[in-house]
């Protein structure tokens, strides 16, 4: 996304949000599939120390109908939620090691935008 809006305490995460935050799983997957180990590491090192704070803020907002200024942080958190295993478990690989081609897995519920 071009100009993400993040709550003030997390304003410095805007460049990461611009790169990673997308409303649908398919869009986030496309970004993840082309990410390098260094990109996974940078995302992880920026997000993991603040994950509890981010989740605390997101706990104050409903799953649907959250205000706009929270939504981009929410989408960045979703991207992190899906990307963290690649840094923690898969050695920075964009694919799950020894796995089926993830591009052949289809989200069959229309992959509604969050």
């Amino acid at each position: 996304m071009t100009h993400p809006i993040l709550p003030a305490p997390f304003a410095d995460l805007a460049p990461l949000a611009a790169h990673w935050a997308r409303p649908s799983e398919n869009e986030r997957s496309e970004i993840r599939w082309s990410a390098s180990p260094a990109e996974f590491k940078a995302l992880y090192e920026a997000m993991m120390p603040r994950l509890d704070d981010i989740l605390r803020l997101l706990s104050d907002h409903p799953a649907s109908g959250m205000p706009e200024e929270v939504h981009d942080l929410f989408l960045l958190a979703c991207a992190f939620a899906e990307a963290s295993p690649h840094h923690e478990l898969y050695g920075g690989s964009s694919a799950v090691p020894y796995s089926f081609d993830a591009r052949r897995f289809v989200r069959t519920d229309g992959d509604a935008a969050l």
Partner: peptide, 27 residues
């Protein structure tokens, strides 16, 4: 159903872990 945005993010994570395990199964 997730009540809060945080619960929804957490579900995305658990879902992703399990989806990834399925990618290992289907391989």
């Amino acid at each position: 159903p997730a009540q809060t945005a945080a619960e929804q993010v957490a579900q995305q994570h658990v879902n992703a872990l399990h989806r990834n395990a399925w990618l290992e199964d289907t391989a």
